[in-house]
Design a protein around this nucleic acid. Sequence first.
DNA 1: TAACCCATGTAATATGTTACATGATTTT
DNA 2: AAAATCATGTAACATATTACATGGGTTA
Lengths: 169, 169
Amino acid sequence: MAKRFHLTELEGAALGVILRAGTCTAYAVRRAFATSPSRFWTGSAGAVYPLVARLERRGLLAARRDRRDGRARRELTVTPAGRRAFEAWLLDPDRAADFGFDPLRTRLFYSDLVPAARLEALLAATAARIAAVRAPAVPQAPHVARLHESWRRLRGGALEEFRKLKRRR
Amino acid sequence: MAKRFHLTELEGAALGVILRAGTCTAYAVRRAFATSPSRFWTGSAGAVYPLVARLERRGLLAARRDRRDGRARRELTVTPAGRRAFEAWLLDPDRAADFGFDPLRTRLFYSDLVPAARLEALLAATAARIAAVRAPAVPQAPHVARLHESWRRLRGGALEEFRKLKRRR
DNA sequence: TAACCCATGTAATATGTTACATGATTTT
DNA sequence: AAAATCATGTAACATATTACATGGGTTA
């Protein structure tokens, strides 16, 4: 009986990137994270390389040295145990339902503590930035693009709703 | 010229809690975080007490021992420098516009990698849990309750939208 | 040929989680 | 009287950030 390892969000997402690619390097995982419109997914080297080493130790990832170009690359693949761990991670409704973390929501939460004029300036600037979020230069799967667009619209909508309510009183 | 300290989200929110209360203990900050529907705001002792100590060292919080009840409490107040740091934190549109982190969004992002039937089961269970999110027993400011309700509705809506699109193909 | 991207990794540091420890007060 | 809550804090551990180090290949 394999010990049940509880994957972090970063670990689950890393397996997702590698599964989608079939095979890729840790560097490609970093880039995939870095293209996210969220700062949560920094793709910093100090996070990704130790994470990959961890998943290898747990038997969820396998690596193969590759030297086709002069570069010494490590091609990663997800093992069967890795896929099982990934599915357990993704299909957990308790974690999926969690509110997570939204910097805008947090700020609206405490918005009564700042002067109304400054708040309105923040909301205007934030709305502009949210509207300006564009799909990354890297080509994205269509469902991914739709998802980002959907969330962009959602947050923009929440912001406008809050603004209108604020104005009305 | 005061050195500009960049507040983390936890630090900013902690100042917000104390500002709203006027004066409160670190324990009250913990409880305020713990009532959040997001696991991001755990309010763990090991996070909050060192955080408060940090803000005191930086002159953003002041503490006063209080022994009105037999208990040794430390009443915290936000200093003028603390309020300035709080406003700079809250009013930063670049941080406010950031996508942050949403466990549901992340899972939908990788949802093409799991069998459709299992995904549908996840979506149904997640929708139920999102719908079941209730206001905490602790009384909330009305704008806070509205904000949670708004986000709950929006996430539910995004989920349903995703489900319909999925079904249609 | 200089700058930039690919590619891997580590060291110092900061921050957070879990679990423990302590003790007073309030509720059941 | 026991259990829960108020209240403070620390120790061990896990994980992430920033900055650095190293080198091969590609583009301006």
